[in-house]
Nucleic acid binder design. Structure first.
Lengths: 190, 190
DNA sequence: TGACAAAACTATTCGAATTAGTTATAATGT
DNA sequence: ACATTATAACTAATTCGAATAGTTTTGTCA
């Protein structure tokens, strides 16, 4: 029978890879099984079903994003740190469109696991704000501002929503300038 | 045989309604047919299949969004207009979560139709910028900033991604303050 | 070496989308 | 008013993917 030697981690990594290559919503267990040289039912030894697979792709992505953002913030401080974190987010999201797509649906699977996956990560941004003399309350709100922009911008990029030939990189840089200028206006408040 | 008297518009409106009620990804032709008191194959007299239905829900949403944003901008000017447009976006998106979900995937269906659906609409924001002494080039970039934030923020709200009890309305207001303060910093430039 | 758990398999069921082919209804023109 | 025709519904059947049940093989460990 020539055992394939799969485990959960391998299955998820391959699914993530496939998602980036052919698109998140094109993934089927049949296709994934083919790419792992296995029959579809065999996957059930490692995952409960397609829903769990999707959840695992999402968690996998947020773990990697966490890592990328943390890495970006070492040995940097102030607004430079904030910028570096934002760039890391955008880079990961646009280089992994399939996985990022999965990451957007936190709540399709209500669970503490899901909540914690992102809460932990965005505490990095929170930390950056407190270094900048932004009040605790304003930081809570600002995290949402930044999260909103970052997720939305990456989503639009991944969907080719920006039709015209204007440089996307430049748009991102100007967006950062805008956000940071606006953030500075909140320094020391309340 | 008691004809149901459907037409494309009715089918799409009901699908949009259903999407808002039970969630975009829960929609099936079977379910939609039930709600229209019809057998599933009968729907094919009005739509080509589930993909076209999804595209039509998306276009339907963007048309309504266009209307809501335009309405918000009449008889207002300057930064007030910009704010009003943003609030209208957020309001429609969060009050119509199922339809908004469909609206996010422009490019699942590549077509001029799709591109035009949003291009036309965001020209309202563009117009607002030119009134504010923002250069043409910066306006192009700023539209992307605002689109990114608005779509991302609404997406996060709709997915309950904001775990803590901090007021979402207040977060949105502060976000607008930040964006507008940042936008003012670009006035007159280049 | 024998027993057991893990990981693969085959065969089957289920449900949703879709297609083919048919029939009834409503609108149109004479 | 009646014949014609297009439309909009139907039933029946096919396809495809997910999922389950039950079986066989493989590897590990007492």
């Amino acid at each position: 029978m020539a055992r394939a030697g799969l485990d959960k981690e391998t299955v998820i990594r391959k699914a993530a890879e496939l998602a980036n290559e052919i698109g998140y919503d094109k993934i089927t267990l049949k296709l994934l099984a083919e790419h792992l040289n296995v029959q579809p039912p065999s996957l059930y030894n490692h995952i409960k079903g397609i829903e769990e697979l999707q959840k695992e792709i999402m968690l996998f992505g947020w773990r990697q994003m966490d890592q990328a953002m943390t890495d970006a913030a070492v040995c940097v401080s102030g607004y430079d740190a904030l910028e570096a974190i934002c760039r890391a987010f955008c880079k990961y999201a646009t280089e992994n469109p399939g996985v990022f797509n999965a990451m957007l649906w936190y709540n399709k699977f209500e669970s503490e696991e899901t909540q914690n996956a992102t809460k932990e990560m965005f505490s990095i941004i929170y930390k950056a704000f407190t270094m900048l003399n932004i009040s605790k309350e304003n930081s809570e709100h600002l995290i949402r501002t930044y999260r909103g922009f970052l997720e939305g911008f990456a989503l639009l990029v991944n969907n080719n929503a920006f039709g015209n030939p204007v440089s996307i990189e430049k748009s991102f840089e100007i967006s950062l300038r805008v956000l940071i200028a606006g953030t500075k206006a909140l320094e020391g408040e309340k």
